[in-house]
Design a protein around this nucleic acid. Sequence first.
DNA 1: GCTTCATATCAAAAAATGTCAATATGAAAG
DNA 2: CTTTCATATTGACATTTTTTGATATGAAGC
Lengths: 104, 104
Amino acid sequence: MELTPEKNANVFKAFCDEKRLAILELLRSGEKCACMLIDQMEIGQSSLSYHMKILCESGIVESRQEGKWTHYKISEQGSHKAMLLLKAITTPNATAEDTRCCNQ
Amino acid sequence: MELTPEKNANVFKAFCDEKRLAILELLRSGEKCACMLIDQMEIGQSSLSYHMKILCESGIVESRQEGKWTHYKISEQGSHKAMLLLKAITTPNATAEDTRCCNQ
DNA sequence: GCTTCATATCAAAAAATGTCAATATGAAAG
DNA sequence: CTTTCATATTGACATTTTTTGATATGAAGC
């Protein structure tokens, strides 16, 4: 897994928008198709499609095609990766806090 | 802890911007004052101030005033809360995935 | 008190993101 | 192969976020 700042930021773009959080909340109860998400969110079709693309690219959501329908669900693997990434980003690294600053 | 979608989104705004990720990376090695962050990031003073405000409001970073200087560090508590929140957002909820969709 | 220095805030411009309506794509059914 | 239906893509526009430069604030030293 590559860890560029850009890719890392993309993972968390899934969570920094209220509508996407609302979509994820709906997906917590299991796989949903786009039409159902459009119904439950108050949102246009192209707008949902836009958000689903971001969610899928973040790795947090995965999609499954079934004929004309697209079904979305939360990706366990993606969520797990996000957890690890969040941990990594917020955990102090080995080289201790010895950098003294300014006038100190 | 209140859990409005808005507040939840704000937590993750800390992580969805490359510059803020870079700032967090610097803070992983310990507390830093603003002047040092300005040096190491290629960023203007008011721009850093803007990002630090977002980071602090997300709870991920905490600041400490010392005379004229402001020191920033990653908040252990804030990071922990973010982990819990991420877990909550991506974990299937009790009511199983029984909602059948469309033509299924 | 005034001056200096570090940081915050403001207002305008620039850049990025989100929305909407129209159109394209591609699968299924006829 | 034409039509229909679900979703994706596009382009124009609106909204939000970020940057920049100017100014404000507030602590420390004189």
